[in-house]
Amino acid sequence: SVSGVPQPYIKHPLQNMWTLWYYENDRNKNWEENQREVTSFDTVEDFWSLFHHIKQASELKQGCDYSLFKKGILPMWEDDANKRGGRWLINLEKKHRGHDLNNYWLEVLLCLIGEAFDDYHEDVCGAVVNIRAKGDKIGIWTSDALKSQSVVEIGRKIKTRLNINPNMPIGYQIHKDTMAKSGSVTKNTYT
């Protein structure tokens, strides 16, 4: 400091408070019981403190999820903020668990807390990473599937920030379609 007197460290506030959720699949419990709220934070330092404290995504057991959502939004389709929306889905091949999964997930977290989606950030609800035997997935959830410009621009930003090959398409699935699907494939409303 200029005066020579040590100044207190002031944490860097985030635009939004974010809540981390952890899902572990216990067949003796229902979905809601398995989805646990871990903690909330609203500064950069508290984000890093939490991030360093928990397991990396690649260290989670099969069937587990991490979710990061704006405070007050539950990580489920039925929440008011999510029910008219959908998600951009990044599918990862099994061989990419580890390095790519952790890098992608961290990048998504930095996009969320750093408000990387410019004018469309109001439409962003949160993100989920699913650790699954058949392939891990990262979803970025938005609130309104009908706001096509917002959805597409958010998708573009995701591809840029995650350095996804421009020739590799990613798909946006509306939650209503995911809920209603009869097979294993949900249609992409946007790519």
Partner: peptide, 18 residues
């Protein structure tokens, strides 16, 4: 209104802050 935006590099810089 205003919005608090953090660049990626800045967030990473704070990773090891006290």
């Amino acid at each position: 209104g205003t919005r608090i935006v953090y660049e990626r590099a800045f967030l990473l810089q704070l990773r090891n802050s006290p």
